[in-house]
Design a binder for these strands. Structure first.
Length: 419
RNA sequence: GUGGGUGUAGCUCAGCUGGUAGAGCACCGGGUUGUGAUCCCGGUUGUCGCGGGUUCGAGCCCCGUCACUCACCCCA
């Protein structure tokens, strides 16, 4: 009888640590909500063609990392490997881009890639993302980047860096690509790399192998071959980022794995995570709306890794989230006391106080231990002795001070202390 | 997908040149006929990842497999 186990490469979060996961997700989403982004909830699977077209046939994600299956009607479906394609699809399908622009949306949830699992690299990964569709205003690029930065900063993270570059657009990238292909052709490359140079030459630039990097020293860089409008756009983005107080590093060899990126492109890397250091990334995708059958509108967005951000917090030994399960812990001694405290638990919860009760027939000592473990600030002890006196014992679990409070005043006393 | 490392109690780990398992924490109880966190005492907990093989005998050696992990790759 083999016990069941979770599928390979899937992280699970459960108490007490799950509170940190929730706090990270909340922290990453909060800046977008404060900036007028509306929530969008999307399916976790889509028509396979959406990703093949949107993410790009030449990408590793599409070529070897998608969970693709056929449903009972013979349709080819794929568990979403990223969020942008779905958001753009929904924007077009529901005509969200028919009103005032930009359309600003945020989302959070699981994504799926069939990779070999590693610390920080999961087959089911959690992301928080935003998309701003319809304007190519560089100030909007800066806003999106700043939202991500603010999310990380609000958690207390400091050992991360923002890498920034521009990948050019349909005007200037083709010519640059030619240059790069020509340059790569003259290098002595192994078979895999040569193939990559054919399919996606930009990817070769950020290869980590030092011997290859040595050869790439003189490689042409996109930023040196931007057309005038792309260059102006990039300059404006950087000016606005400075105004927003965001710091970045120029990363002219930064390349993203998804084909749709144009112009502003960025990635956040954390120094405490080993090889899987990217905690978030994104950029502009000015051709994607048109490519997926919508109006030819521009767009920019990011995806932030919730799992990796949590790992980054742990690497920096930050405490995130509230590990306390409740504020007040009720300890009844005897049936009559239990009736009173069960009723009180309902009243307190309706008033917004977090309450737990020592259920079962626990001994006093065990019940108090439960109070301690719950993280509660106060314990209420009620036994026959107290009932006779018409009061309950209110114990402050931090100062260890205990006072008698008339039963009728319990609710108002606790509300006064906690709300 | 490629290469390396590691799998022993719920958790962190010890276990000698092969002789059929230990510690700390956690949990439960007692010390305190109604008081946690601290202290003292006692107790529960394992198909030693799984399957084969070698051996009189395997947690330890060999093979396979699964999971995790590190790097490549990829990316969040």
């Amino acid at each position: 009888m083999a016990a069941f186990t979770a599928p390979k490469g899937v992280p699970e979060y459960y108490p007490p640590d799950s509170s940190a996961f929730l706090a990270v997700r909340e922290a990453l989403a909060a800046p977008a909500r404060r900036a007028g982004y509306g929530y969008i909830e999307l399916p976790v699977f889509e028509e396979t063609g959406l990703f093949v077209r949107g993410v790009g046939e030449s990408t590793d994600v599409v070529r070897k990392e998608m969970y693709t299956f056929e449903d009972r009607g013979g349709r080819s479906l794929t568990l979403r490997p990223e969020g942008t394609a779905g958001v753009v699809r929904a924007t077009i399908e529901h005509g969200l881009d028919r009103g005032q622009l930009p359309v600003k949306l945020w989302y959070a949830g699981p994504f799926f890639r069939a990779e070999r699992p590693q610390h920080g690299r999961y087959r089911q990964l959690q992301q928080v993302g935003v998309e701003a569709i319809g304007l190519d205003d560089p100030a909007l690029d800066a806003e999106v980047v700043a939202l991500a930065d603010e999310g990380y900063r609000s958690l207390g993270l400091s050992s991360y860096r923002l890498l920034l570059t521009s990948l050019g657009d349909a005007q200037c990238r083709p010519a640059y690509r030619e240059l790069l292909v020509e340059f790569l052709r003259r290098l002595d490359l192994d078979e895999d790399t040569r193939a990559r140079a054919q399919v996606n030459p930009l990817r070769v630039l950020d290869d980590k192998r030092p011997e290859l990097q040595a050869q790439l020293g003189a490689a042409p860089l996109v930023v040196d071959h931007l057309c005038p409008s792309c260059k102006e756009h990039y300059d404006d983005v950087r000016r606005h980022l400075s105004a927003l107080g965001v710091q970045w590093e120029e990363a002219p060899r930064l390349v993203r794995g998804l084909d749709y990126y144009t112009r502003t492109t960025f990635e956040f890397v954390h120094d405490g995570l080993g090889a899987q250091s990217g905690i978030g990334g994104g950029g502009r995708y000015d051709g994607l709306m048109g490519l997926l059958g919508g109006q030819p509108l521009s767009g920019i967005g990011f995806g932030l890794g919730t799992d990796r951000t949590l790992l980054a917090c742990q690497a920096e030994e930050l405490t995130v989230g509230d590990s306390a399960r409740c504020d007040v812990y009720l300890v009844p001694l005897g049936a009559t006391a239990k009736d009173r405290l069960v009723a009180l638990s309902g009243e307190l919860r309706r008033a917004g106080v977090r309450v737990d009760v020592a259920y079962g027939e626990r001994a006093m000592k065990g019940a108090m231990k439960g109070a301690d473990r719950s993280g509660a600030t106060y314990a209420i002890v009620l036994g026959d002795r107290d009932l006779d006196a018409g009061e309950a014992q209110l114990k402050d679990l931090r100062s260890h001070e205990q006072t008698a409070v008339p039963l009728d005043d319990l609710l108002s006393t606790l509300k006064g202390k906690l709300l």
